[in-house]
Design a protein around this nucleic acid. Structure first.
Length: 447
RNA sequence: GGCCUCAUCGUCUAACGGCUAGGACAGCGCCCUCUCACGGCGUAAAUCGGGGUUCGAUUCCCCGUGAGGUCACCA
């Protein structure tokens, strides 16, 4: 059995989106599952639209996703070979130079066309089964603008054969191109690869994902702090499933389980919310050090005590779905961990009962005493055990409930109406800092 | 419009022709709770329609319908 060789063949004419990289992921997983080769070929035959920065972006993305190519090609490097075969076809009169009336700016007065004999071309798609196309209506299609400028169909047929590609895994939007490419292969006597056309990924409007309609470039997801393992996981399960109930698979598990026979035929809608949910799963699996590295807040560490940051990681894992969201929290609702915020006198008294004036202050004093009695480095659970009995105390009972005490405490510690619970805050801040903040609150009440 | 392809909850999907059509994400509700989040429990939600084949169709066949793709001197 010949080893599998798959390829990812993007054209560097723009930033690639999730749909493009999903085909790369499937091609990679398929090759690696069988221990075969994964090739990346940059299809830059359109010299006018191909840009080096787009090519750079593609490789950046593949590095980020960790989809290393066993071999890398640039289609334009094969110009001599393409020319040789083009000349051969012309000599054999399978192709011919045709005079044209240019229709659009940039059109040539002379192109190379394939002498199409017509008839039905059929192939067996690994995913969809038999697909037949009547190529008669294709006419004598163009295979090159000139001897040195082959067009996509021609270059693909030649390169796939020259590079030993056994499986062409690409989007279903290429189905109708396949017959044309087979025609060229046959004329050139090239081996015919197996084809697997993947279901398309659709946007919310159920249209093919495209940058024109707002699909994000993959690197945008990287930049807002999506983990590559999450992206890989989510995209692999869009149009494929491992055959069991697993929803979260590591890259090794994906390679092990991947199988073209379980690829869906129907297209799938890209759901960012689910991607973020998968991302949260993988964020939670990160070690504290790795998590902080991904946070990438190095420049602000003078503001953020690094020990405090470490202690905040569990809170961030609990809340954030992306690292940019985590950063927002750090500077927003969790900023109270790193700096005291000014307290609003009326907010502090929000749970004060009119019939029991001074209750808030007395509660905070009792809490302050209880906090000082706590040993250093206690868990949130231990803090809760120590403070909860106070919250249930006589004076707080009735209408105010535990909130009569817990609210001023949490507000004194965080300066915010929304924040983690007070026990967690104490355990993170340390009781010295916690006591100092409570004292500050008491001082405000005394004024 | 021609040609090609596809069709299970809102979304991603599972179900040798045979359980009450299962799971996940998102909803919703309850619990936990001073808030936010987490968590726990629960709930709603689907086989596009019509014909066949069969003892029995989500599953196989046909016809509709719908959706998408493609019809470049772009890939």
């Amino acid at each position: 059995m010949t080893p599998v060789v798959s390829r990812f063949a993007p054209s560097p004419t723009g930033l690639l989106h999730s749909g493009n990289y999903r085909t790369a992921i499937f091609a990679y997983l398929f090759a690696k599952h069988s221990g075969g080769k994964f090739i990346v070929r940059i299809e830059d035959t359109d010299a006018a639209r191909s840009k080096p920065e787009y090519e750079k972006n593609i490789f950046e993305a593949l590095v980020w996703l960790d989809l290393p190519a066993d071999e890398t090609y640039r289609q334009s490097d094969h110009r001599a070979r393409h020319r040789e075969l083009l000349e051969k076809l012309i000599v054999e009169d399978v192709a011919y130079v045709s005079k044209e009336a240019p229709q659009a700016p940039g059109d040539r007065a002379e192109v190379i066309r394939f002498r199409n004999q017509g008839g039905v071309i059929a192939f067996t798609d690994v995913i969809r089964g038999s697909i037949a196309t009547d190529v008669t209506d294709l006419g004598d299609f163009i295979i090159a603008r000139s001897l040195d400028e082959p067009v996509f169909h021609f270059a693909v047929a030649v390169d796939d054969a020259d590079e030993g590609v056994t499986h062409v895994i690409r989007g279903a939007d290429h189905i109708s191109n396949t017959a044309r490419q087979i025609l060229i292969q046959r004329a050139l006597n090239l081996p015919e690869p197996r084809y697997a056309h993947l279901p398309l990924i659709l946007d919310k409007a159920h249209k093919k994902l495209s940058k024109r309609t707002g699909a994000k470039a993959l690197t945008e997801y990287r930049d807002i702090g999506v983990l590559p393992e999450a992206f890989l996981n989510y995209l692999a399960l869009l149009g494929w499933n491992p055959g069991d109930d697993r929803e979260y698979l590591s890259r090794d598990e994906l390679i092990k389980a991947f199988d073209l026979s379980r690829v869906q035929k129907g297209s799938a809608v890209f759901d960012e919310v689910k991607l973020f949910s998968v991302n949260q799963h993988w964020m939670r699996k990160l070690s504290v050090d790795d998590f902080i590295a991904h946070l990438n807040v190095g420049r602000t560490t003078s503001y953020m005590d690094s020990e405090m940051l470490r202690r905040a990681v569990p809170l961030l894992k609990e809340r954030a779905h992306t690292f940019s969201e985590a950063r927002e929290m750090l500077f927003g609702e969790l900023s109270c961990l790193f700096a005291k915020t000014s307290l609003d006198h009326t907010l502090l008294l929000v749970k004060e009962l009119p019939e029991r004036p001074g209750m808030t202050k007395r509660a905070l004093e009792a809490l302050s005493a209880a906090l000082q009695a706590l040993p250093e480095g206690v868990s949130a659970e231990a803090v809760k055990e120590a403070l909860m009995p106070l919250a249930d105390l006589e004076e707080a009972k009735g209408k105010g409930g535990r909130g009569a005490l817990l609210w001023p405490l949490r507000y004194a510690l965080s300066g915010r109406e929304r924040s983690p619970d007070p026990f967690t805050l104490v355990s993170i801040l340390g009781h010295a800092e916690a006591v100092s903040r409570v004292q500050t609150a008491i001082a405000i009440l005394e004024k």
